[in-house]
Design a protein around this nucleic acid. Structure first.
Lengths: 229, 229, 229, 229
DNA sequence: GATGAATGAGGGTTCATTCAT
DNA sequence: TATGAATGAACCCTCATTCAT
């Protein structure tokens, strides 16, 4: 019978710090405070990314996150409801932005080989050479234990990317640039990206992998001009 | 001593459990005992598989493993040095057997399209429709925190599979059955398998994925007869 | 999304230590263990009584309870589900026994003045000069925040005592030994007892109170032979 | 500094808040400010009353008090040194006023039966149907942990009420209106009041208690004309 | 004065590991 | 060997208190 939570608190957002827009007086300092607040939030997210990436959700201590963010342990709770919220927010924050970019790219209706080059480049620069790589690994590692998060990821990220890809592939197939079967499994396009992410985290030190080359090879193999059956 | 913070990868084998046959006396019952002992060990591993698969390393309680195995908590420590050992042994035990099968298959020197069919079938039946799928997911999820385990996996499993694949692809390329580039990145062959494993764990419930069809499509795309450049 | 509790655990009792009766082998040591277990449980309850009495529910640290009981903090959780359970069990354990005694006393159908003497004596010896006094104070102090406990106390203790008293008073009133109104409010009988308990905890050091004398006086005033109205 | 463990009863008044009129300048607005200040103080006390009554001392969060009072958390510290001070002040503020009323009533030297009626009425209207009831319950619940407070309560409230009662009862006994013994234990008079307070907080929902009737009954029983022994 | 973000000590609870039986 | 009660180090989260704005 612990004290009942009165804190309604939105799903995953900051709990109280509502930062009401301070209309009128003290606009200046309120703005500063808001800024500082956003900076802190980002610092926490950045620290959390490091820790979660290195240790996984359960093994990460908020103490370490706080220390890394240069704040006190309790401060985390001013910005996130609990450890899980922090985790989920982190993943959302990191993964949401890519979607738009890919959708835009898909809508441009470029010739497939050009599009493919762009996608590979996008993946390498925006994901693979970024912390986003680790976030995706986290998603893979912990997703089963956070069904809500998996759902979010599917709905907001994956399904949209897949839909965009599928549309492109359909058009390309209609133009004969691509074998028809590919549009049924857009996942195939992304498969080497997944391999790259997993490999880099676990086996890079034993055998480096030239991700860009691998992806390029894959694309060439898929798009190679075929003899008529 | 309570749970150590830093994951000091320790020698992974059974600690003391002197299973070596009792010298002289009671040779007979010693055999029986050995049998029972092996059965217990297996029961623990089986239970651990379920629990680790469902919850991940940290979130798994040895209490639950013991309960599921039908033994007392302390008994686990007669067969495994600690939680980490149990985990690592489990992964080793589950993943080692596939290697031989794949190597054998590779050595058979079949025509690539036939080999491809066999590989797809092998993967689906021996991995995907098996708990091994979960073990691989575990490996992906926890690998970074168990460098020794990742190393083992690379050395004993991955590198050997890759070597086998590469040999096959080289020969096939020489015969013109396969584009030369593929041998540089045998990972490409496995990529959809990885996609399948990840997808099944996280997104199956939103959008089912016909793994066999996807892998078949992938293989067909890769092996399709090409026009001369 | 913390790990879901599989521990069903009965309302307030010991969580797992089910102490299955070990039928057959090792009866001896099992008995010993059971004994030791009961002793430990009692030690915890005794320690909890001290601490809760001194500090109240919230301010009591289980750490202190454990230290006082001579055990490790975690051990408490082998016997009680949580702090609240410990608290509630403590109160139940302490208060339940009195009821029977009072009921028996009431059923004996003694002349009121004799009964009154006995009740006063019972209260003083079994409650006031006992730790039970503190338990009742605890009940008063914390009851509002533990509605379940208040309900238990009302149902299992108070209402039964009141019923017993009322029956006695009815009979006595019928015999003219007691004014009729008293049976309507048996609480009046107990009122000085309550005063005694509260006084002893808070003001004894400023002004001692002769509880027995006060209660005797009260009884005499209530039972004094009256002039006909 | 975080919450101190040991309850060091500290001087209870406002800490620094230099409410003394600003010397010279702005005399006018200083008055207004003083007013506002007092209003704020009262708002805090009112909010604290609700919260402390509902949850007890430890379980009450100053955050909730502040929210209820419509102020910021930090503001509380402008009016009270700390949580404990607030608590003690609250109790003092609430309980002090009754004393005078009772003393006055006692000094009036009414016939006992009339006085008794007045007292019952006073208790019901000024305590029982008031938040003061809860304050007394708080005093009972937390008194042991706040010895200073208990002492204050005894010295400033209880002992004075008791003295007044005793004086009245002595005079009444001399006139033969009351048995002599009663003057020895004026607590007896108050006992049903205590019962009423405790009962209302814990058991009212199971079995309502007509407090006024109970107290009236009690008085009648005590004051009933007696046969000469 | 008033605010509320920030602090950080603390405490309830968990669970890997040990060890007496 | 097997058991499971006992241990105690962690770790998440709370909240009284402070202090820059």
């Amino acid at each position: 019978m612990s004290r009942p939570r009165t804190t309604t608190a939105t799903p995953n957002e900051r709990p109280r710090s509502a930062h009401r827009s301070a209309s009128g007086v003290q606009q200046r300092s309120a703005g500063k405070r808001k800024q500082r607040s956003a900076a802190r939030r980002d610092a926490i997210l950045a620290a959390a990314l490091e820790e979660f990436s290195d240790r996984g959700f359960e093994a990460t201590r908020l103490d370490d996150v706080a220390r890394r963010a240069g704040i006190a342990k309790g401060t985390i709770y001013l910005y996130f409801r609990d450890k899980e919220s922090l985790f989920q927010e982190l993943i959302r924050t990191m993964l949401t932005p890519i979607v738009g970019t890919i959708e835009t790219l898909g809508a441009a209706d470029l010739p497939v080989n050009l599009l493919a080059d762009r996608l590979v480049d996008l993946f390498v620069r925006e994901v693979f050479e970024t912390r986003r790589k680790d976030v995706i690994r986290l998603m893979i590692a912990e997703g089963r234990r956070f069904p809500k998060l998996a759902e979010f990821y599917y709905r907001e990220v994956l399904s949209r990317i897949i839909a965009a890809m599928r549309a492109v592939l359909r058009r390309a197939a209609a133009r004969g640039e691509v074998p028809a079967g590919l549009a049924d499994f857009p996942q195939i396009i992304a498969a080497p990206g997944l391999v790259a992410i997993v490999w880099s985290g676990l086996f890079e030190r034993f055998e480096p992998l030239d991700v860009r080359a691998m992806m390029k090879t894959h694309v060439e193999l898929l798009l190679a001009p075929r003899r008529a059956a």
